[in-house]
Design a protein around this nucleic acid. Structure first.
Length: 588
DNA sequence: GCCGTTTTCGGCCCGACTGTTTTCAGTCG
C-alpha cells in the first residue's frame, strides 16, 4: 500500500476512535477530511514530506495533521493514534459500520453494556440484555439485528454497471405512475462513481403518496426501511438500499443538486451561499435567515432566489453549471465556464475488440456490422496474443491468417473501416508477446498487462514504460489490470507513465468494462495534465458489451476528458492519419 | 482540527425520519 493510502487509513481510524471517545464532532470531521484528502491526493505524500510547508499547503490539512503525517513518515507511528488505540477496544470501530448505528449509540453500548466488537454486539443482542438501555427499545434492536444480517450478506458497494440498470428499472417503474412529471437518478450513480453505495431517485409531479406506494411495491424491493410523506428508503433483493424523494417541481433543481452531491461539493456550495448572504438547502437558494428566525425559509413562505433548475442555482452563486461527474470538491468551484466533456454520442470508433479467433463470441463480420450499426466509422480488431493461452491467444501463423481475414472483410464491407490489430500481452519483464517484425505488419497495436499483476510498483512502472515507449504500440490497454472489488492490479507510477506516453504519442486506454474502468478517473486527470491522448474502449467480446461504453465515458468525464483529447472522437480520416503518424513520430 | 471579502477566535451545512420521547436525540444523506 502506498504511503498516501496507509496514512488515509490511519486518519480514518483516528476519526473513528475520536468519535468513540466522544471528541468534538468538528475535530472528528477534520480528521475524516484529512483521510479523504490523502486518499485522493495525486502527489506522493512521502515526496511532499521532504519539502518544507508542502503538506500544510494542502487544503484541509493544517499544522496539526501535517505534524502527524511527518511523524509517521519519520517513525512509522503516530503517538496520538497509539494513545487513542489504548482508550478504545480495537473491535469497536467496526461496530460504527453497522447501518443505523452511530457514534453515540456505539459508545453507549460499549460503556453501558460491554460491547467491544461485532461479535459481542451479536451475542448481547441474542441474550436480550441490551433491551432497556437508554433509547434501546425493541424496534431499535430489531433494526440493528437486520443491519448486522445485511452486512454479513452483502458487505459493501455495487459496481456502477450493476447499480445503473437497477436504478433505471426503478425510474421506469416510477415514470409509469399517473401524473408524474419527472423522475431522475441522483447520488453517486449520477456522478458516475465506479462503485455505488445506494441508489437515489428523485421525482416530482403527481401524488407523492402514490409515488411512494409504487416505489415500495417494485418487485425488487425486499423490505421498507423508512417511509414518510416525501421520502422512502427500501432494501432491494440485491442487498442495495434505494431512496426516493418526492419534491415539488418548483424546486426540482435544488433537490436534484442536493441529492446528487457529493456531500463535500454541497458543503462548498453552502459555504459559498453563506458568503453571499444566501442560504442553500434542498428547497432552493434563499436569502439568509435573520438572526431570530431559525425555521427553514421555505416553511416561512420566503421566496427563493433560485430553485427550479440546477443552472439557475449555480448562476446565482456566480458559477457555471458543473457536470455531475466533477462534483467531488476537487477544485471544480474554480471553473469559469462549463467544460465540454466527452459524451457517448461523440464516440465514433471502438479501438479494442475481440472475435471468435480468440475469446470473443462474434465473427469478424458480425462485430463489424454491429459497430457500423452503432454509428462507428472504425473498429479495431484486436484479438489476444499467444501468451494469453486461457483466452485462446493467436500464435504468429494464426495471427497472419487472421489479419488476412480482417483485411478481406474490410475490403468487402461498406461503411466501416477495420484495423487489423492485436491486443498484445505485455510480458512480466516489459517485452511484448510478438516480435517487432510481426507487430510492424499490424495496423493497430493495443499492449496490455494480463499476468504478473501483483508486481512491485517499481517493476510494474518499468514494465509499462517499456510498452509505452515501444515504437509499434498505439495504445496502452487497461494499464493497471485491476478488477473492481476483486483484484487491486498493478500500482505503477501513473505520472511517469503519463509523461512517457505524452512524449511518445502513445494513447492510454480507459477500459469501459464496468469491472475494469482502467484507467480510473483520477488517473485520467493525471494523463490529461501530462498531455496524453486517451482512448475509451469497450474491449468488446460479445454484442452487449458495446453498451458498457457509457461507463467508460463517465469515468473519463470524471477525469475531465474533452473530445479533442479522445482518439475515439476523431473522424475516420484523422484517426487513420493519427495511426500512421504515431509510428512515424517514434521511428525518427 | 481547520480556516479567514466581518475573523488568528469563533465559527464550522441542513432537513427528514425514527423511536422512544412527553419535546427530542440520533442517524443518515
Amino acid at each position: 500500500m502506498s504511503a498516501n493510502a496507509t496514512l488515509a487509513a490511519l486518519f480514518e481510524e483516528m476519526a473513528a476512535l475520536l468519535e468513540l471517545t466522544g471528541a468534538n464532532s468538528f475535530r472528528v470531521s477534520a480528521h475524516a477530511k484529512v483521510a479523504r484528502v490523502l486518499g485522493e491526493l495525486d502527489a506522493d505524500v512521502e515526496a511532499l514530506g521532504r519539502e518544507p510547508g508542502a503538506i500544510e499547503a494542502i487544503e484541509g490539512i493544517g499544522e496539526g495533521s501535517a505534524g502527524r503525517i511527518r511523524e509517521w513518515l519519520a517513525s512509522g507511528s503516530i503517538k496520538d493514534l497509539e494513545s487513542l488505540r489504548k482508550q478504545v477496544p480495537p473491535g469497536l470501530p467496526e461496530v460504527l459500520r453497522v447501518p443505523g448505528l452511530g457514534p453515540k449509540t456505539a459508545r453507549l453500548l460499549w460503556k453501558e453494556a460491554g460491547v467491544v466488537d461485532l461479535a459481542t454486539l451479536k451475542a448481547k443482542l441474542a441474550s436480550g440484555e441490551l433491551l432497556g438501555l437508554p433509547r434501546m427499545g425493541e424496534k431499535t434492536l430489531a433494526k440493528i439485528r437486520e443491519s448486522l444480517e445485511f452486512m454479513e450478506k452483502s458487505g459493501g458497494r455495487a459496481r456502477l454497471g450493476e447499480a445503473a440498470p437497477v436504478a433505471e428499472s426503478l425510474a421506469r417503474h416510477l415514470r409509469a405512475v399517473k401524473g408524474v412529471a419527472r423522475v431522475e437518478v441522483a447520488g453517486s450513480l449520477r456522478r458516475g462513481r465506479e462503485t455505488i453505495g445506494d441508489l437515489d431517485l428523485l421525482a416530482c409531479g403527481g401524488d407523492p403518496a402514490g409515488l411512494i406506494e409504487a416505489f415500495r411495491s417494485h418487485p425488487e424491493v425486499r423490505s421498507v426501511l423508512a417511509a414518510g410523506e416525501t421520502k422512502c428508503s427500501v432494501r432491494l433483493a440485491s442487498g442495495m438500499q434505494a431512496d426516493l424523494r418526492v419534491v415539488d417541481s418548483s424546486c426540482f433543481g435544488a433537490a436534484w443538486l442536493y441529492f446528487t452531491g457529493s456531500k463535500e461539493h454541497n458543503v462548498r456550495l453552502r459555504e459559498r451561499a453563506i458568503a453571499r448572504g444566501l442560504r442553500l438547502n434542498e428547497y432552493g437558494l434563499f436569502p439568509h435567515a435573520e438572526a431570530d428566525e431559525d425555521s427553514p425559509p421555505q416553511s416561512r413562505g420566503v421566496a427563493p432566489v433560485a430553485a427550479a433548475s440546477e443552472e439557475e442555482i449555480y448562476e446565482a452563486l456566480g458559477l457555471p453549471w458543473i457536470p455531475p461527474e466533477l462534483r467531488e470538491d476537487h477544485g471544480e468551484l474554480s471553473l469559469r465556464k462549463t467544460p465540454t466533456l466527452v459524451t457517448v454520442e461523440a464516440i465514433r470508433s471502438e479501438l479494442h475488440a475481440h472475435t471468435r479467433a480468440s475469446d470473443g463470441t462474434m465473427s469478424i463480420e458480425e462485430i463489424a456490422r454491429l459497430a457500423r450499426d452503432r454509428g462507428f466509422h472504425t473498429l479495431a480488431i484486436t484479438d489476444h496474443s499467444r501468451s494469453s493461452v486461457q483466452a485462446n491467444g493467436l500464435d504468429p501463423a494464426r495471427l497472419r491468417r487472421h489479419l488476412d481475414a480482417v483485411r478481406e472483410a474490410d475490403a468487402r464491407l461498406d461503411g466501416i473501416r477495420l484495423f487489423a490489430g492485436s491486443e498484445v500481452d505485455i510480458l512480466a519483464d516489459g517485452r511484448l508477446d510478438y516480435e517487432d517484425e510481426l507487430l510492424a505488419e499490424l495496423d493497430w497495436v493495443v499492449a496490455s498487462p494480463h499476468v504478473a499483476l501483483r508486481q512491485d510498483p517499481k517493476v510494474a512502472t518499468e514494465r509499462l514504460l517499456a510498452a509505452v515507449r515501444h515504437p509499434l504500440v498505439h495504445v496502452l490497454g487497461h494499464p493497471t489490470g485491476r478488477l473492481i472489488g476483486s483484484r487491486p492490479g498493478l500500482e505503477p507510477d501513473i505520472e511517469a507513465i503519463a509523461k512517457a506516453a505524452a512524449e511518445c504519442g502513445t494513447a492510454l486506454e480507459v477500459n469501459a468494462n464496468h469491472h475494469r474502468l482502467d484507467l480510473r478517473d483520477r488517473h485520467v486527470r493525471i494523463a490529461l495534465e501530462a498531455g496524453c491522448w486517451i482512448a475509451i474502449n469497450c474491449d468488446v467480446h460479445s454484442p452487449e458489451q458495446f453498451d458498457e461504453l457509457r461507463y467508460g465515458v463517465v469515468t473519463a468525464r470524471r477525469g475531465g476528458l474533452t473530445p479533442d483529447r479522445c482518439l475515439n472522437c476523431l473522424d475516420a480520416r484523422t484517426l487513420d492519419a493519427w495511426r500512421k503518424a504515431k509510428r512515424k513520430k517514434v521511428h525518427k
